[in-house]
Design a protein around this nucleic acid. Structure first.
Length: 424
RNA sequence: GGAGAGGUGGCCGAGCGGUCUAAGGCGGUCGCCUGCUAAGCGACUAUGUGGGCUUAAACCCGCAUCGUGGGUUCAAAUCCCACCCUCUCCGCCA
């Protein structure tokens, strides 16, 4: 959420941000008009309430002194009628204003390139070399099915398309990857491990920005009005919702494994083969809550933390700085990590590393105090996948495949596979 | 699912129509006192929001907030209704 004061005092800045993000700048004018009316109305209502409060005290005094207060009471009744009308109006205005506010995307940071879509993203770095293979490469689904570690047919029987089913060493590798990533971030990067609930209340989804705008993307349990999380970011960022943290508590570094559930409503037909795009997948997520002046430094560190996983797995990847038109709704700045899948000849996104500044903190009301005397301020929140499992699995299968159809296990994962060097 | 208890400031906890500008305590901040520390003494100590002033902060004037939403009343933490949540016991269950 943006600071309403920012829209009031610097509407041009917000209009420009909206335009760069391919949103309609007229959103600003709609807000300003409503806001103006709201402020006029609340000011009028507050003044009448003041009159009422004064009169009520007067009535109290009259009654205590045994005097007649009927005239005064009648006066207040009339004031109350006017207040009632104004407040009914206010309620509608506030609802509308809040709704408008929730649909403003974040303002891009000044270092974010301006661009229309993915073609405007900048490649800022890359790591690793393309491997040379002397035999025809198979796509990951073929490798997985042949080895009996992936079974898409049975996954579809159980749940439909865009679901995965791991068997045997595949399932073990999946579990090993999760454990490796969690251990790695806890031991080497100082994160605290969290295991969150997968179902959350609607306001939690509003806090991180999934709702109200992206309702169609979410699985919802109607009977209980709970949403299945699309990422651990949602519950973990909201951990400190409605709290005022002390500055000594910051920064907070959390790492959480969770399953992630996405309807992929807008993506029908795209990347449906194999592990590329799924309704349910596993992810290890990094979440930080920090003080505002350190958030960009923390953002760079966060990116390095996510990169370290790819490096340990010895997977070739590149880092993209997303442009204004391609960046997610809540982010002020975002890097994407893309892993190279040799057989598919494709870069696959395995992490989005975002700084949200105070955008989520405002929605979720996450604050801190610099010292016991000072006013609470909104914290900054950040997160990065560290990493998303299916596309890592794709990359491992495709890049570590052998001529005989087996797959070498990356060295760092072997302790999690009983020392095994390859599958089978 | 059934029965009961309860939701009050950073925390504990009193209040059950106007004196709530929320008692008291804990914690915190500042000061005093004191060889040092501890103890003691004193003051201060919620948030949001509209407006004023200001470069800004501070500050000043309002309004709102005692789980949430309605209602009664001139006046609600306090009375009424609905809902949500937490805890305890029972039942069921991984």
């Amino acid at each position: 959420m943006l600071d309403p004061k920012l829209i009031r005092t610097q509407p041009d800045k917000v209009r420009l941000a909206l335009k760069n993000r391919e949103y309609k700048p007229s959103q600003v004018d709609e807000f300003l008009a409503q806001d103006e009316t709201w402020r006029r109305t609340i000011s009028e209502s507050d003044q009448l309430k003041q009159e009422r409060n004064t009169a009520s005290e007067e009535i109290g005094r009259l009654k205590k002194g045994g005097q007649n207060s009927e005239a005064k009471q009648e006066e207040v009744r009339k004031i109350n009628d006017r207040i009632k009308a104004l407040d009914a109006n206010l309620k509608v205005l506030e609802e509308k204003l809040n709704q408008l506010l929730l649909y403003f995307p974040n303002i891009p940071h000044e270092t974010v390139p301006i661009g229309l879509d993915a073609s405007g993203n900048h490649v800022v770095s890359s790591w690793g070399e393309e491997k040379k293979f002397s035999f025809p490469l198979k796509p990951h689904w073929e490798i997985g099915e042949k080895l009996g570690i992936l079974d898409f047919a049975r996954a579809a029987k159980l749940s439909g398309s865009m679901f995965s089913l791991y068997m045997g060493l595949g399932a073990k590798l999946q579990r090993g990857l999760i454990q490796f990533m969690l251990d790695f971030h806890v031991k080497n990067h100082g994160y605290t491990e969290v295991y969150p609930p997968y179902l959350v209340r609607p306001e939690i989804m509003v806090g991180t920005g999934q709702l109200p705008k992206f309702k169609e993307e979410m699985y919802h349990c109607d009977a209980d009005d709970l949403y299945l999380i699309p990422t651990a970011e949602v519950p973990v960022t909201n951990l400190h919702r409605d709290e005022i943290l002390s500055i000594q508590d910051l920064p907070k570094y959390y790492v959480a494994y969770s399953a992630c559930f996405r309807r992929e409503a807008g993506a029908a037909g795209a990347d449906t083969r194999g592990l590329q795009r799924l309704h349910q997948f596993d992810k290890v997520e990094l979440v930080k809550t920090v003080i505002p002046e350190s958030s960009y430094e923390e953002h760079e560190k966060l990116l390095k933390n996510a990169e370290a996983i790819l490096q340990s797995l010895e997977l070739r990847y590149r880092v993209l700085l997303l442009c204004t038109g391609d960046m997610g709704f809540s982010a002020a700045k975002c890097y994407d990590l893309e892993v190279w899948c040799q057989a598919s000849q494709k870069w696959a996104e395995v992490s989005s590393c975002s700084n949200f500044e105070d955008f989520q903190a405002r929605r979720a009301n996450i604050r801190f105090r610099r010292d016991p005397k000072s006013k609470p301020e909104f914290a900054h929140t950040l997160n990065a996948s560290g990493l998303a499992l299916p596309r890592i699995m794709m990359a491992i299968l495709e890049n570590y495949q052998q001529p005989d159809g087996s797959v070498t296990i990356p060295e760092i994962l072997r302790p999690y596979m009983d020392g095994r060097k390859q599958i089978p």
